[in-house]
Design a protein around this nucleic acid. Sequence first.
DNA 1: TGTTAGCACTCCCGAAAGGCGAGTGCTAAT
DNA 2: ATTAGCACTCGCCTTTCGGGAGTGCTAACA
Lengths: 343, 343
Amino acid sequence: MSQRELDPRKELILKVVTDDYIESAEPVGSRTIARKYNLGLSPATIRNEMADLEESGYLKQPHVSAGRIPSQQGYRYYVDMLMQQQKLKEEEQGLIRLYFEDRSRELDTILQQTVKILAQLTRYPSLMLGPTLQPSIFKHVQLIPLSANDILVLIVTDMGIIENKVIAVDCPVTQADLDRASYSLNKKLRGRPFASLKSSVLNELKEEIKTEDSSFQQAVTLLLSSLDTREKERVYLDGIINILEHPEFKELEKFKLLLELMEEEERLCRLLSSPYPGIRISIGEENPEEAAHECSIITANYEIGGRVVGTIGVLGPTRMDYAHVVSVVEFIAQSLSEFLSKS
Amino acid sequence: MSQRELDPRKELILKVVTDDYIESAEPVGSRTIARKYNLGLSPATIRNEMADLEESGYLKQPHVSAGRIPSQQGYRYYVDMLMQQQKLKEEEQGLIRLYFEDRSRELDTILQQTVKILAQLTRYPSLMLGPTLQPSIFKHVQLIPLSANDILVLIVTDMGIIENKVIAVDCPVTQADLDRASYSLNKKLRGRPFASLKSSVLNELKEEIKTEDSSFQQAVTLLLSSLDTREKERVYLDGIINILEHPEFKELEKFKLLLELMEEEERLCRLLSSPYPGIRISIGEENPEEAAHECSIITANYEIGGRVVGTIGVLGPTRMDYAHVVSVVEFIAQSLSEFLSKS
DNA sequence: TGTTAGCACTCCCGAAAGGCGAGTGCTAAT
DNA sequence: ATTAGCACTCGCCTTTCGGGAGTGCTAACA
């Protein structure tokens, strides 16, 4: 975080320039500021201040005879020090609340729709990293025979997240075998956090099943290994189209890079995942992805029962309506957390 | 289907124009044809034929001094009568086969990756309508308590499709209640086709449970109603970016309309769903969606165990490589059907 | 010393102009 | 019936050019 290192008048001007540029998408000139914002300063004075701000890296000029726009450093200062926290408008709050009132749907649908509403309210592309298994608690496992050699493994967590996986076994197993296996797996695993499964419990379990027959052994071993490999999280996405509203993407090439990014889940994950809780704002080149170097990303984590399980966020040009987006993302993340924690 | 109503030389010229335009995206002129395709005809002759073809509606001119391009009617004739069926290249077949060899994944992932490979091979945006429940056979149901008042209902079909839904009950139910309910539901429903559930079986079941306690009754009733409402199919999508390779979408507005379409599942469903099996080609305004009036769509249904359960398809400009796409879509639909039927 | 008016200068942007080139339809010859 | 020749059309690309917005600098002023 930056220190407060600009004098009040420079701050004021930086703020005004940023606000105006965010709104208009046009470089802001000294004349405009003087006329529009009544600061009691002449254009010339503002010009001087702007020149200073440019020299110290907070503003820049697209070209000599244009107004100023904020640099990445300028946005950072704006976001950290100048931006006014907005309270979400009543109607927006209402919309979100209303949406989260209707409850009986699949998890998948809920998440998809949450991203959709986020995109609608922000008018930017919105993304979500689906809930991880890691912090969940094991609730139920069910082994279901699909055919002679294929078993469907269903794992349910306390959050209602469902994992399913087909595993192939060499020798046929009977329904009875599987029921028995399901039963003892459940007895053993129910209530345990996933994070702890890999190490202790599983070995323990492996020991135990030595006494059982081989097909059961095999099934369990496979289950365990499949639990191991399962790390990929789903990415939800909506409102890509919103990006086209913004003049910075009128050049197809720029948009193309971004669209490419959006179609690759791994890269999105890298962009979104954030270790610490709370709102995070990444501006321009702070983003790890080359394609997003002219974008900013605002994310917040959401939780289930106090445990962080996923991330929700918005992607936009660096000239983004930070204040508004922050308030929406925050509110939705919180609403989603509450919603998921209730079930 | 059109009758064969053009004389051979006109057909030849229509075919050449279409082939060339599909490849080059430029209106093709008489001179080009004469030089490039050695038809033993002079440009002037070709011009006369083209003028005839234009008059009868198979070709059109973007403007007076440009070459000809196929009209929608022209494409239709091309697709129905002139296009040579291609056999898929060995390497493409190999790629697809290779992909379908690796088996143990979730259904969801498989479908997503199938669309991805379709997009890769065709270089067009690709879509899939996820498998419907309707033609499946009931395999297993499991009721799992998530909290005091929420029950997770898991339904597994013989195809490994998994539906899950959270339903809320008024009064708390115990694990034992649910196990008992699961048991009798399974006994009753296993092996029945979904299509038949709504009517006969369910009423029968309702009668039967009158004798049971109320919480059980309630759960079953809810289950039935949730089965009813569940009709929405998932849409998988990949390779949107490919559309930008084509000059017809260099105008942002056109692309925007299409992107809008792609972000709305219902509209995609309407566009894709096709009653009859086999390859279907919709050209330009044959499509029900306004936004796709300058596009063509090639779809094929895929099956599980001989029953049509979904659709896979490709969207491109009307100037689309029909022959190649048809062969890819066909092959992938078939491979997917085989793959899904094996499990 | 900070602020402001005045002014010359820069440079983007959009409109207008002009030339090129590809392709056509028509006519007349084969 | 086919073809060569030719005048004509028209999209597109490049160039040109003026207007306008905005600047930095200088000098005057409080």
